[in-house]
Amino acid sequence: MRLITRKISARLSTRRRSRYAAPAVLVAALLAAGGLYVALSPADATNKADDASMIAKGRSLFQVGCSSCHGQNAEGIVTKRGKQYGPSLVGVGAAAVDFQVGTGRMPMAQPGVQAARKKPVYNQDEIDALGAYVQSLGPGPAVPDITQSDIDNADVVKGGQFFRTNCTACHNFAGSGGALPGGKHAPSLRGVSAKHLYEAMLTGPQQMPVFSDGVLSPQDKKDIIAYLKKNEATPSYGGFTLGSIGPVSEGLFAWIVGIGSLVGIGIWLTSSSTRSTKKKGDAA
């Protein structure tokens, strides 16, 4: 065996200075890369025949509502200073469109460091059409199927652990959101639909990093969502939450409600002393 390999390598070695050696290696490498890509790339890019009309509808919607920033063919617009006016959407996938347009972040009401969540401008059919168009430009994550068959408490607990490890640093322990540098922020997660939560993790909108399926598997993502939904369904055991933003609001209430009312009570106690029970009109 060792002899054979040595023989082959010896033969290859003698040819390594051949004129065809470099092109041959190049071709082999290209074939290997291409083959691997075909084998491993997401399979969402397949178009069905009836998608063609969707794509056409999406394209026409896109050209009215999106192209002024993202360009006529969603190739993005670069400003004179080399900054992005609107990024290219080739390859972002339908999931990104569904999140950005579905949560009202796109189209943006005004330029700013970050697009704010607001009432969606498009209905779900239009969003799907826009998504189909963007998906047709290049392969990207498709709108995920988040139907959950059976979630037991262990999944919720595991989701909580993933949440604390990956999410609380920006989104706060209760998903109330938090500040990021330069006026950016991590938004609140309360009242966000499961689908949009999943899409945000999958596509990493705005400041958020992408949590690809290699980092957080689809099951992990669903567990995190289950944890958040469980928290939303859990009553607030301690009373009013005071915003669930940590000790700052607690201190505010301690001073305003606590010290405020106790000083008021102190004023009341000292104003109604035995001396002040005298009637009006009594001699001083």
């Binding site: 609380t168 706060n172 938090g178 000790p247 301690a254």
Partner: peptide, 13 residues
């Protein structure tokens, strides 16, 4: 868990 942190970590007032 020393590997975790939450936004809005503050001391009492």
């Amino acid at each position: 868990n020393p590997a975790e942190v939450t936004a809005g970590s503050q001391p009492d007032w």
